[in-house]
């Protein structure tokens, strides 16, 4: 199912990788961001903070950052979709304003279908906001030609740990 998730995400122009542990995840993200990146991250997500993102670049506001690192509640294997809910330390703008969105989630969070992910999220307290992210921001408004990077991130990467 994890392979299916990565394949679907990459078919939509995203990048996906499965790593064994936190250090491997941290190394992969560091390589993706390149030298001296500006970034913002979810301080309310244990998996994100475990990467020690502050040591990967200069931390700044989402509107100024080149990359945003978030967690994800679930990943949907059928479509390569990241399911994000928000709250304290889990800001909406982190994975939205920067050019690059990196989401870190553990392998046991990959589910088969959207209906399954939605059922899991809504079985508890209703989240104030949830976003399903499938690939990069895009538009086809000009002569039906698909152009990536309309208003949201130009690049989406998922790091699956475990």
């Amino acid at each position: 199912m994890i392979d299916a998730f990565i394949a679907a995400l990459e078919a939509d122009g995203g990048t996906g990788v499965r790593v064994a542990d936190i250090p491997a995840a941290r190394a992969w993200v560091a390589e993706l961001l390149g030298p001296d990146p500006t970034l913002c991250f979810w301080s309310g997500d244990p998996l994100v903070t475990a990467l020690d993102p502050a040591s990967l670049g200069s931390v700044t506001e989402p509107a100024e950052a080149g990359a945003g690192i978030t967690g994800a509640d679930y990943g949907v294997a059928a479509t390569g979709t990241l399911v994000l809910t928000y709250g304290t330390g889990r800001w909406r703008t982190t994975g939205l304003l920067p050019d690059v969105h990196v989401a870190v989630l553990s392998a046991d969070k990959i589910v088969a279908t959207l209906e399954e992910a939605v059922a899991k999220v809504y079985s508890g307290e209703v989240p104030r906001a949830m976003t399903l992210v499938t690939g990069a921001s895009a538009t086809s408004d000009i002569e039906k030609i698909r152009v990536v990077g309309a208003h949201g991130p130009r690049q989406v990467a998922a790091v699956i740990v475990g």
């Binding site: 928000y86 709250g87 989240p127 906001a129 949830m130 399903l132 992210v133 499938t134 921001s137």
Partner: peptide, 21 residues
């Protein structure tokens, strides 16, 4: 012709404390 668009937002109220909505 795709299963999902790039973004689907599910919005259920104003932001809570600490959320930037």
């Amino acid at each position: 012709g795709r299963e999902l668009p790039a973004y689907v937002s599910w919005l259920s109220g104003p932001a809570t404390d600490g959320d930037d909505g």
